[in-house]
Every structure is written in structure tokens, then in C-alpha cells.
Amino acid sequence: MKKCHIAYLACTAALIGTGLGAAPPVAAHTLHVVHPGESIQKAVDAAQPGDTVLLTHGTYHESVDVSTPGLTLRGVGRGTVLEPATAASTGTTAPSTGSGTESGAAKDSKGSKGSKGTKAATSCAASGNGICVVGTKNHNVDDVTIASLTVTGFAKTGLYATEADGLTVRHVTAVKNGVWGIATEHSVHGLFRHNTARDNGDAGLFLANTVKEELGATDTEGTVVERNRLEGNRIGVTVRRLRNLTVAGNQITGNCAGVFVVGDENKPKAGFVTVRDNRIERNNKSCPKTARLDALQGTGVVLTGAEDSLVTHNVIKDNVGKSPLSGGIVLFKSFVGTTSDRNRISDNLLRGNSPDLVNTDTGKGNIFEGNSCRSSKPAGLC
């Protein structure tokens, strides 16, 4: 591993005769460069907040735990590839149980590295995930950036994060991972932009409050899922038990279902989610029934158990299937009996879906208006 010391300094030259003192310098950060055959984990463990670990072009057979706030881990594009260390580590497809949520962090609550923390953090990567950004309730791993690389072939999740507020994931390609492509729990104010999630076992992008506890929806403080390409997954993007989040400008095609906004009986209720300006087409892959969900095929957008959400200005075409959840935009009463209330479905272009609009919910205040569509269940929604 090579290190390059790069100081991002403010101008320190004093203005002669002005009486003004020199501006204080900005702290220097370090660029850690890693080549194939070298250890990413060693570079990450050596990094301090604000440092960048740069992975050069090539394939790395390694899982990585990130526990340093403010760290950037990036490659040089899709040609920087992380794969499981051995064939045995790929295992079999694991159930969608939020692997790594109790992995711990590699630092104690004061931020100093310790052997106990390092051992705990290792469990996330060792359990079949690719990149893990894992904090604890006492030590969030905030403001981490993961960028410009590929994670593929992991038994569970390509990129998994928890207790990681302010996480940025951009230009990451997550392909053929057993459960989720990119997933977060217990994290707010995230940005997921220009990523590709393809052929993952469950959702390409999965964002939730938690999957191991029964809790009310979390306010994400404005998390954004924007301009991603999501194809060939079970579900393109799942938003589960969250509030105050935007899904915008994404290309979502070839999945069993495009977008799920999911709530349940817990309080506060899921909602205040905006789904806008997406192209959601031909999500006609067939996925069998699971313990939690009916068989899926031909589904564009589903709202279930959600309130005060907006689905607008999307192009939704040719989503056709025989699932109870099939249709272009589906308002569906949750499986635990919670209604969806005060949602607005407006100004969408829908063509060739079977049908274009569906409302099987008994909730109050839901509005369908201004949509360009040809078929609905019940009739009269277009």
C-alpha cells in the first residue's frame, strides 16, 4: 500500500500592510492508494477521518469493514471490482434479515481503535457482505462516501450500512449479490446517486429503519435516491418504514416489481415519501411467494401502509403480471391490515400496464388525479 500526503490548505499568505493575520490552514488529509493483491482493510484501518482510500483498477478478493467517520473509499470506475475472498464465502442465498445489524464498530465510543471493536466489526464482512459501513448507537460512522467501484457475488449484501448518517453512495455497481445490492438501516440523510444495482436476490436498493425490531418509521431527514439504474432484481428499490425520503429520476426495469413503499401498524407510520420523475418499465420478471410477500410480477409502484406520500410525473409502462400486486401504480392494503391514507397519485403517464392504476385499499383521503392512463381497478381512477 502506498500513501500520498495531500494537504487541502487555505491560503496562508498574509496581506502585507492590511493588518490581517494569516488564515489558519485546513488540516491535511491522506490519500491511501491500494493495488490488487494489497489489503484494502489495512488501508481502511490506517485511515483517519477525512482520508481517502483509493482502489486502483483490478479485482480485489476481499470484504471490507469501514468504521471511521468521514472516510472516502473509492475506486476508479466499474473496473475496480470487489468479489468474495473464496468460493466458499459466497455460500447460499441468505434470507433478507438485515445481516450485519449487530456487527459493532471497529472503534470504541471515543473513536480510538481497539481489538475488541475490530473483532466485532469483522463479523459483518465475514458473514457474507461486501463493503460494510457499520456503527453503533454510541459511535455512528457518519459522512462516509463509497464511490466508483463494483461489488459482486457476495452471499448477502454488496454494500451494507447501519448507524451511518450522511452516507453517500455514488457510481457503485452492485451485481448478483444474494440478498440486497445496496442496503441501509438506522441511517438518515443519505444520498444514493448514479448507482447500478442488477440481478440481486432481493432489492437492488433497500432502505429501512430496521429489519430486526418492531419500530415506528424513521424520519430520514431528506434521504435521496436519485438517477440510479435498477434492473433484474426482485424489487428495484424498497423503502421500508421510513419518512421524508425522495426517489427521483431513476431507471427501473426488468425487476419483478419497481418501487415498494412499505409501512405497517407501528407508529409513527411510514410516509411523506415522494416518488417522482422515474421511468418504470417492463418489470415483468416472475418471483415466487415468500413468507412475507405474495408472488411478484408486473408491478410498477406499490404503496402499502403509507401516508401522505406523493407519486407524480413518472413514466410507467408495460408492467404486466398475474400477482395480486400487479399494475402500474398500486395502492394496496398492508398484510397486517394497516390502511394507506392521504396519498396523492397525480400527473403520471401510464401505458400498457395491467391495469394502469389499482386501489384495493380502504384508507381515507387518497387522491388519483391528472394521470394519463387507460385502465384501472376499480374503474374510474383514470
Rank of each mutant, 00 (worst) to 15 (best):
M1E: 02
K3C: 01
K3A: 00
C4Y: 08
G17M: 05
L20R: 04
P24S: 03
V33E: 09
V33P: 07
I40V: 08
Q41H: 14
T52R: 13
L54D: 13
L54P: 13
D65N: 11
T68Y: 11
G70S: 10
L82G: 01
A85M: 11
A88C: 09
S99K: 12
S99D: 15
E102P: 11
S103K: 14
A105V: 00
A105H: 06
A106N: 05
K107S: 04
G117C: 02
T122L: 15
C124F: 12
S127V: 12
V141H: 02
T145L: 14
I146G: 04
L149D: 05
T150P: 01
G153M: 01
L159Y: 07
T162F: 03
E163M: 15
A164Q: 11
H171Q: 02
G178C: 05
I182S: 08
I182Q: 11
N195C: 13
T196C: 10
G204R: 02
T210W: 06
K212L: 14
V224K: 07
R227K: 14
E231L: 09
R234D: 01
T253G: 07
G254M: 06
N255W: 04
G271N: 09
V273K: 03
L293D: 08
Q297C: 02
E307D: 08
L310W: 12
I329W: 00
S334E: 09
S334T: 12
N353C: 05
